Simulated assay, not measured.
Amino acid sequence: MSKSISYFISGLLLGGLLATLGFVLFVRTLDSGESGNAQTVLKLGHGLDTGHPVHKAMELMKTRLEELSSGQISIDIYPGAVLGSETQCIEQLQNGSLAMTKTSAATMENFIPQMAVFSLPYIFRDENHYWKVINGEIGQELLAQGEEKLLRGLCYYDAGSRNFYSKSRPIKKPDDLKGMKIRVMNSSTAIDMVKAMGGSPTPIAWGELYSALAQGTVDGAENNLPSFTTNKHYEVCKHFTLNGHTRVPDILMMSAKVWNKLDPQVRDWLLIAARESSDFQRELWQQETAIALEKAESEGVTIYEVDTEAFAAKVKPMLQNIGNSDVRKLAKKIKAINE
């Protein structure tokens, strides 16, 4: 055989190896022992710590998937952003090198524009309205919107209501935001919201926020109570305002490349386990929110209950001039849903 033909065959073999590398990266097959059966293990990466309700829910999902599949399918969970940031993990889903990740619906705006509806301020009347929407037709349709971007939503996790907190002075009314630099997620909707209320929005990665607050890069931020206390932002910020401007859920996303390679039975098991983890996480979240409130107060944080109508009035023009037609239609549908 000539050298040129030998090189050609070697190139074909190498190409085949590279083509399957993505699948090998997101899943590994293990010998299960005496039975001789192979076990498929899916990789799940996220940026939360192991004490977070979402991580605990994922551990339940792992256990339930193993039970449903009689040990055929399992999940390796990599917390603490060891596999990258939210955006980096999403990109790994798209190329098939990661099976699942947790992401905020706000982050998903950059991949699925319709997700921006969750970041619209005061789009939900209350918690009951919120859950009716995301567990209903609208919420389930949004989970499927990422197929073209090689992303598939499995379930939602509760991330509570987002509220303002600050260092030097309290935020009791929208005018108090004037002249204040407020950290927001990298979401155009969140940026527009803070601008509408009179503040100066500053996108900063979540992992960098504590330092940014301590160093005065920003004057405050906005998030839920458990995130505020878990990350010890109470050490820097002593004012927390319960204005509840948004309810942006977390989403368990899966690589469509990975999903499409799974057996239909495995998909069913995975969906069952994911939905059970969502219900479990919702209960945990309510408990953690109550604990977080007590913790914040014990650390000297003043909690302010305010007139949310004043904040809602500031963003009303924003809701009346939604640029994306799909988001505008979704917002109209959400508003029309009765409790």
Rank of each mutant, 00 (worst) to 15 (best):
C155H: 04
D158Y: 00
R162K: 04
N224I: 05
I182N: 02
K172V: 13
G300Y: 06
T87V: 14
A144K: 14
I138D: 08
A336T: 05
I334F: 03
Y165M: 05
L120H: 08
K62M: 04
S278Y: 00
E67Y: 00
L225N: 00
L151S: 05
M1Q: 13
L98S: 03
G220A: 04
L18Y: 06
L284T: 09
N37D: 10
S325L: 13
F164R: 03
D49W: 01
P203T: 14
K295W: 07
G323E: 14
D250C: 13
D263K: 09
F118P: 07
M253V: 08
E137V: 13
T103D: 06
L270A: 05
K295A: 12
M253E: 12
G207D: 12
C89G: 13
A273M: 01
T40R: 03
K56V: 15
V327Y: 08
G244C: 04
E288Y: 07
L25Y: 08
L150G: 07
K316F: 03
Y210E: 11
G216S: 05
L68E: 13
M254W: 04
L142M: 14
L42A: 10
Q287A: 12
W259Q: 05
L271S: 09
N243P: 02
A214I: 02
V258M: 15
L12H: 06
N163M: 02
I334K: 08
